[in-house]
């Protein structure tokens, strides 16, 4: 509309660029994920000790890493929101938490599937696994508090605060569990971790998986933020309708 009046808007091309970026990212993520599947299930050599189950490792590790990235983004965006009060900060924080909770859940599920044949137990209080579980709880609390807050405004502030506290807490959880475990070693039948015995081809596929999962993560994040923006616009329209 502003363009008709002869004044080129600054916002519209920017939004279009984001929408395009989302589409390209979706395409990229789709292609990368398909290639990644081929690499994991066809190209990657079968692990000499662990057998086929080792292939879940290419999925589990990138997902775990990105679930922590989501948490980092969520805390940073939370600080940004508390200082700047821009809605886009809150959209970023909210979207990172939601995508993050999905990734943490998948990391836990793949971790359990890995642990049973490799370590002989469904669950072990291994520091990384335990920290991931605590991360899951904090994410869930983050989303619950948005749900239970009396007003959306309070939900935004409170969840930002929870995100920050949780982020500070997670490293302490990791170290305390590591120390705790050094006193109470958990019985495992397989090798503790396969990281050190990684063949070069395995390492390269792992890095490819990480890139593919990052593209997926980025796409989901942008898509969720765009959806939140639509929700906000809808709320604004409702508000205008209610007050007139």
């Amino acid at each position: 509309m502003a363009a008709i009046a002869g004044q080129p808007t600054r916002k519209t091309p920017w939004r279009a660029a984001i929408r395009d970026a989302r589409l390209w990212l979706l395409l990229l993520a789709a292609v990368l994920t398909l290639v990644d599947g081929y690499l994991i299930f066809v190209v990657a050599p079968t692990d000499a000790v662990l057998g086929h189950i080792q292939r879940i490792f290419y999925i589990h590790v990138p997902i775990s890493i990105l679930s922590f990235l989501g948490f980092l983004l969520c805390a940073i965006a939370g600080i940004g929101y508390l200082i700047r009060r821009g809605e886009s900060w809150d959209r970023l924080a909210h979207a990172s938490a939601e995508v993050g909770v999905v990734f943490v859940t998948l990391a836990l599920i793949t971790g359990v599937i890995w642990a049973r044949p490799v370590w002989g137990v469904w669950w072990t209080w291994e520091p990384r696994l335990t920290t991931t579980l605590i991360l899951w709880f904090i994410y869930v609390a983050y989303l619950m508090i948005r749900q239970y807050a009396p007003t959306p405004q309070q939900g935004r502030v409170w969840s930002a605060v929870v995100g920050i506290i949780g982020f500070v807490d997670v490293p302490i959880v990791y170290y305390s569990v590591q120390w705790w475990r050094s006193i109470h070693p958990v019985q495992v039948i397989g090798p503790e971790a396969a990281d050190d015995a990684l063949e070069p081809i395995m390492a390269r596929i792992l890095i490819f998986s990480l890139v593919a999962t990052l593209a997926l993560f980025g796409y989901l994040l942008l898509e969720r933020m765009a959806l939140r923006k639509t929700e906000d616009t809808l709320a604004q329209l409702r508000r205008d309708a209610n007050s007139d």
Binding site: A141, I145, S176
Partner: peptide, 8 residues
């Protein structure tokens, strides 16, 4: 909110 954070 409380229990996950005070695990350490």
């Amino acid at each position: 909110l409380f229990f996950p954070v005070i695990v350490p």
